[in-house]
Computed example of a mutant assay.
Amino acid sequence: MFMTTGDLQRSHMITSVVSATRKLMFQSDEVDQFERFDGLIEQVKRDLMDKAKKAGGDGLIYVNFNQEIAQISVAPRYLVVTGYGTIVKLAD
C-alpha cells in the first residue's frame, strides 16, 4: 500500500475517491496548538490507507490534506484535518 501527493507513472486503474476527517477539541483559554495538527494528519493518513485497503486498492494518489480551526460559538474550538485521495489498482 502506498500514498502519494502526485500522479503515478505506471499503468493503473482508478477505482474510487476516499476521504477521512479527524478533529481535536481544545479549550478557548489555551494558546493555539498548531503542532497538534501533525498527530491528526498521521491519524487521517492511517484512516485513508485503511479505507483504500478495504476497497481493494493498491494505493492512493493525489492525496491532499486540509487543516482548519473550527470555532462553535465562543467555545470550544476544534483542530480539524480532512484528507482525501484517489484509490488506484495497479495494472499487471
Rank of each mutant, 00 (worst) to 15 (best):
T21S: 13
S28P: 06
Q33Y: 00
L24V: 08
G59Y: 11
L60A: 08
S19L: 07
A52S: 10
A52W: 04
A55Q: 09
K51N: 09
M49L: 14
K45M: 02
F26T: 09
D32V: 11
K53Q: 13
M49W: 06
K54R: 11
E35H: 12
K53H: 14
G39T: 12
E35V: 07
D38A: 13
R36F: 00
D58H: 15
A55D: 05
K54E: 09
V31L: 14
R36M: 03
L60C: 03
V44M: 10
M25R: 15
Q33H: 06
D47H: 01
K54H: 05
G39N: 12
E30N: 12
G56F: 11
K45W: 03
K45C: 07
K51V: 00
D50G: 01
K45H: 03
E42M: 09
G57T: 03
A52G: 02
S19E: 15
E35F: 00
L40D: 04
D58F: 05
M49S: 06
Q43T: 03
V18K: 03
S28I: 15
D47G: 01
A52E: 02
G57S: 07
K51L: 03
V44Q: 04
L24R: 12
R36P: 01
I41F: 00
R22N: 12
M25E: 15
D58V: 05
R36G: 05
F37K: 02
D32P: 05
F26R: 13
K54L: 08
L48T: 08
D32Y: 04
Q27W: 06
Q27E: 15
D58T: 14
K23F: 00
D50T: 07
I41H: 02
D29T: 15
I41V: 14
Q27M: 06
F34I: 06
Q27N: 14
S28G: 12
K54Q: 11
F34T: 10
I41A: 03
L24D: 05
G59D: 14
A20H: 06
G59N: 14
V18L: 06
L60H: 11
I41C: 04
D32E: 07
L24M: 10
L60Q: 11
E35N: 12
E42I: 08
D29G: 13
Q27K: 15
T21I: 14
L48N: 06
R22G: 05
Q43D: 10
G59R: 15
R22L: 13
S19H: 14
D47S: 02
F26W: 00
V18E: 02
V44Y: 07
E30G: 10
V18R: 03
E42P: 04
V44S: 07
S19G: 12
S19C: 11
F34G: 13
V44N: 06
E30M: 14
K53G: 04
R22V: 15
A52R: 04
F37R: 00
Q27A: 15
R46T: 13
L24E: 11
M25D: 10
A55H: 01
K23A: 10
Q43V: 04
M49T: 09
S19N: 14
V31F: 11
E35M: 09
S19P: 04
Q33C: 09
F37T: 02
L48H: 04
F37Y: 04
A52C: 01
F37E: 00
Q43W: 07
D47M: 01
L40M: 07
Q27I: 13
K23N: 09
